[in-house]
Design a protein around this nucleic acid. Structure first.
Lengths: 300, 300
DNA sequence: CGATCTTACGGGATTCGTAAACATA
DNA sequence: TATGTTTACGAATCCCGTAAGATCG
């Protein structure tokens, strides 16, 4: 067996704190894991790096020498890795996006954090607006990239899908339906339904789903934001169905989210853009990021 | 994810050979494994290190810069690790051992290789002799350490056990008994038996085992080396029972080795020495090696 | 008895190798 | 078609975290 970078970092942390307990907290690993890591490193080195006679670990002479080498080694390591990452880092420019709120609230933050970690010098301009205005923004060039469900009318834009989103049922946690494994659309038709405002894409899809299963929903009220719908469900006004994108958000509100069996209502989620060839470097990098990492991200 | 030393070694090998196939042979890993390793490293770096357009991989400018850094990094790494290992390495001295042939032929080579790898400057003096003479050698100080089964009379020596050895049955591969899962001593009593010479410890144990199960063996012939016994079994003269230590050797001869159920004949294997406190550094190191690593090494 | 380190063991993630698909001269 | 790379998937390995044990003040 050979030594690893992780073991060296562990050794340096322990040598500095002179305590496994303290070092394990710094390294965000458990104390036993650190104990075996140090022991393994000592196995590679060929002898003891610490004296364990007292209650507090003290470096042996060999350990003291190795500490100096290890610290230098880790400095070089991090330096070299930073250097190569910097070479690939975009130096300037900006990323202008438009995204529908369902995506902007749930998936986008993690993606943008990742993007910003890779390219800290790129400014990010984000508009979270409804699907129709996302299309406008991309067409007008206000945003280079748009993220939304696949619209019925692309308006001359390209669409690069990277995920399929299925609707999920949202009910109050104490609702009789909340205990089920899965629901069908006709189950939702029996309870008062809280829908998106007429004219929105989500509304068209829910209407279509009810129509297809031959059961009209008892429409109780409408809202034009999914988070509003969540709150209305929360207070017991009725039930609803939302894109699974919003599952995490709805669960945060304390609502029960159940998969919807039966006639599948699935929508492509993807990136809207004017021309793949004319993308700025930041936009191209983001497009690669989103199509590469989002491939398998399902929600119940 | 962070980069690993292994990935850096892979990168350097590929960059030098400009071929995954060639590099994978050097690194003793499969080509696909190397392919994903490089891809992962590129993921950490944030961009492509190689141009894959032609059939032959060529470094990108960033890859070229990284290669220089990686080579330096690996040099430092190996240097530092060598240095610490050298600090723990015994500089001079010799290790004088006596071991019974059963052990010297089967387990000792790997142990000595390991010891020599750790302490290349230590001369090793090995006597492979029968148990009684091992005791003599240690008592007389000709050997500092003796490896053998636990003798009935320690002769004033210390014995540090590190393994339990059970006898196994040895039969020709085409023998009717060879197909069984396991044998009992009384099964062996039916066939002609090839034993160790009277007076040897192995002979006393096999005699004892037959006596205990109430079946006298049909003694066909005797030999004073276990390897001779193996060859006699091979040519169909009869069957035998040997310490499991010799299992690998017997299988190498093309013989069938079967576990012996029923009355257990097990012997402690361990190290004989005059005084634990008076050991030389090489002997102490070897003792630690053998008691540490041999703990769980069973043979069918 | 309390704090700290070690040992033992089950679960999860990573990595490897085999096999098959793919690209290119 | 032959060489060389990538993708997919089952299997083995390694590493970590939880829990129990040991040691010292």
């Amino acid at each position: 067996m050979s030594a690893t970078v992780k073991q060296l970092r562990a050794f340096v942390a322990v040598a500095r704190t002179r305590s496994l307990a303290e070092a394990s907290a710094q390294l965000h690993i458990s104390q036993p894991a650190l104990s075996v890591a140090i022991r393994n490193l000592e196995g590679v080195a060929g002898g003891p790096l610490f004296n364990r006679d007292s209650r507090q670990l003290a470096l042996t002479p060999e350990g003291r020498e190795f500490l100096a080498r290890a610290e230098q080694l880790l400095r070089n390591w991090d330096q070299s890795l930073d250097a190569i990452q910097q070479r690939f880092r975009l130096q300037h420019g900006q990323l202008s996006l438009a995204a529908i709120p369902a995506f902007a609230l749930n998936r986008l933050p993690a993606l943008l954090a990742q993007f910003h970690h890779r390219h800290p010098d790129i400014n990010i301009v984000l508009e979270d607006i409804v699907m129709e205005r996302v299309i406008d923004a991309v067409q007008a060039g206000r945003a280079e990239l748009g993220i939304s469900f696949c619209p019925d009318d692309l308006g001359g834009l390209e669409f690069a899908p990277f995920d399929r989103d299925r609707f999920i049922a949202v009910v109050p946690p104490d609702h009789p339906l909340a205990g089920r494994e899965a629901l069908r659309w006709r189950d939702l038709a029996k309870a008062p339904f809280i829908a998106m405002n007429r004219g929105s894409a989500v509304r068209r899809w829910t209407d279509g789903a009810f129509a297809r299963c031959g059961a009209g929903a008892r429409l109780l009220c409408e809202a034009n934001q999914l988070s509003t719908i969540g709150q209305l469900v929360k207070v017991g006004l009725g039930v609803s169905a939302v894109p699974s994108l919003c599952g995490a958000q709805m669960r945060d509100y304390g609502l029960a989210c159940l998969p919807l069996a039966g006639p599948v209502v699935a929508q492509e989620v993807g990136v809207l853009l004017r021309s793949r060839g004319a993308l700025s470097a930041p936009a191209a990098a983001f497009l690669e990021l989103v199509t590469g990492t989002q491939a398998g991200a399902a929600d119940a």
